[in-house]
Amino acid sequence: MSTFKALLLDMDGVLFHGDRALPGADEFLQAISHLPYCFITNNPIRSPAMLVEHFVRLGLPRVDESRFVTSGQATGEWLARQQPDFGFYAVGAAGLHQTLSQYGNYDPETADFVVVGEGEGLDFDTLTIGINLILKQGARLVCTNPDHNVDASIDGLHRVLPGGGALVAPFAVATGQTPVFIGKPHPLLYEMAMQRLGVAAPDCVMVGDRPDTDIAGAAALQMATALVRTGRFGRGEKLPSGLEPDWDCESLTALLDRWRDACPETFGTKTKAG
């Protein structure tokens, strides 16, 4: 904890499940509010502005848009590096379209890139348009994140939804083109967040719920890692071979307690029950 300077946090499965905040999320955010931190997420469905309002609806603290780095933003950044003033055809939720429009131009006829993200949008027509852009116009196939599936809470019930890796599969099969994946565990999301905070990887701790994305990607950058088992990777599950987070906790509350024990001058003291 002596080199602790900044925090990167996943959101889905860490702070909330869909439309329900997880226990301890509010207290955790209050405890780190004086530190440099960013939220980094593989979920491209909501833009940063949408995420600010989502936090408020969940009863979490209102934070500035600049705190959020989404896979939609990282995808737009990557596309702009490949080709300035690019044209795109996106298949996914409205937030993805809004985010990509800040970097390039929507062009369903001669797009340079077909971008697939999470959320509603995939159907026979959008698949057909995307396939033809790739096969006939030479568009490259890009996916915001490699997750095969993601957790959600809909009307209070747990649901498993298709992730970017599943939604891009029909395009890959139909065209024979291997998609370029942008989100975690690939480095761009982490790098964008660190650049905003002005810190290097050894000065950061990544807090996430998925060993295969959050933890693996951070560890590859020599970043400290904290796994919370409130998402898909539950209590008692065995860690994948070769992955050993610096902290492995059942919840944000348990993680905060450990940090308060180790560094009370930074995180305060434990809240007494009763």
Score class of each variant (00 low, 15 high):
S2N: 14
K5M: 08
K5P: 04
L9H: 06
L9S: 15
D12T: 02
L15E: 01
F16A: 00
R20A: 13
A21Y: 02
E27C: 07
Q30I: 12
S33L: 08
H34C: 06
Y37V: 01
C38E: 10
C38H: 15
P44F: 00
I45T: 15
I45V: 15
I45N: 11
P48L: 00
P48D: 06
P48I: 00
V52M: 09
E53F: 03
H54D: 11
R57K: 15
L58F: 05
G59S: 05
G59M: 04
L60A: 05
P61S: 04
P61L: 08
P61I: 00
V63T: 09
S66V: 13
F68G: 03
T70C: 07
T70Q: 08
S71A: 13
S71P: 07
Q73T: 03
A74P: 07
G76R: 06
Q82S: 05
D85N: 15
F88I: 01
F88R: 04
F88E: 11
G92W: 12
G92C: 09
L96P: 11
H97Y: 01
Q98E: 15
T99K: 05
T99F: 00
L100W: 04
G104M: 07
P108Q: 02
P108W: 07
E109D: 15
T110V: 12
T110L: 13
V114M: 08
V114Y: 08
E118Q: 14
E120F: 13
L122P: 04
I129S: 02
G130N: 07
G130F: 07
G130Q: 08
I134G: 14
I134L: 13
L135I: 08
R140L: 14
R140G: 12
V142F: 01
C143V: 14
P146S: 15
D147S: 09
H148I: 12
H148S: 13
V150S: 11
A152R: 06
S153R: 14
I154G: 04
L157T: 03
H158L: 12
V160G: 06
L161V: 00
G165V: 01
L167D: 03
L167Y: 10
F171M: 13
A172P: 05
V173D: 09
F181H: 03
I182G: 06
P187S: 05
L188T: 11
Y190M: 07
M192C: 08
A193L: 00
M194K: 02
Q195F: 04
G198L: 11
D203S: 14
V205H: 01
M206Q: 02
V207S: 00
G208P: 00
I215A: 02
A216H: 11
A218C: 03
A220P: 04
M223V: 03
A226F: 06
R229K: 11
R229Y: 09
R229A: 01
G231H: 13
G231K: 10
F233C: 05
G234T: 14
R235C: 12
G236L: 01
L239K: 04
S241R: 14
G242Q: 01
P245D: 05
D248A: 05
C249M: 15
E250Y: 10
L255K: 06
R260S: 05
R260H: 03
A262C: 04
C263V: 09
E265W: 12
K272G: 10
A273F: 10
